[in-house]
């Protein structure tokens, strides 16, 4: 067992882990932050997307030890005191989810995108969602929600 220490959603955490522990398992089983979803476990679906030092990464495809000393952000850190943030509100408002399984990853990917590119085009949004798979929505309302979350006019995007 090895001790790993990192900051998760602004709080310093330290745990004993087996060195082979994936970051996704550390968050879910170690910290009980089960909003980080395991969809495929083969690095393709993006449901486990979290932020490590501000960058979107797949938590199922790095080890907890590799986040030693890092600032980790999960979906639980997006809302504050039960109040949804702008991105989450936009997903709700524009029906950017159905079953909701992919949504934590979608929101975390969106947050990383908007930090680098505050007003992405529809094409840029669709390209940026390459690694996040949704099997319900057909992506249309997710794209719409991201346009809205970035303060852009969504009336030009036809209804799904």
């Amino acid at each position: 067992m090895t001790t790993v220490t990192m900051t998760v959603n602004g709080k310093s955490v330290s745990r004993e882990v087996e060195s082979r522990t994936l970051l996704s398992a550390f968050l879910r089983d170690g910290l009980n932050l089960t909003g980080t979803h395991i969809g495929c476990d083969t690095s393709q679906c993006g449901a486990c997307t979290v932020h490590v030092d501000g960058k979107a990464v797949k938590a199922c495809t790095m080890f907890a030890l590799e986040a030693e000393g890092a600032e980790v952000g999960t979906i639980e850190g997006q809302s504050s005191h039960g109040k949804l943030n702008t991105i989450q509100e936009a997903f709700k408002e524009h029906h950017g989810l159905q079953c909701g399984f992919c949504t934590p990853g979608m929101v975390m990917t969106t947050a990383a995108l908007l930090k680098d590119n505050p007003t992405p085009s529809e094409a840029q949004i669709r390209a940026h969602l390459e690694g996040n798979i949704c099997r319900c929505t057909g992506y249309h309302n997710i794209v719409k929600a991201i346009m809205a979350a970035s303060g852009q006019d969504v009336s030009a995007i036809a209804a799904a």
Partner: peptide, 9 residues
């Protein structure tokens, strides 16, 4: 290469 999250790792 890959997707944005893959490119970050």
């Amino acid at each position: 290469i890959g997707d944005p999250a893959v490119r970050n790792r």
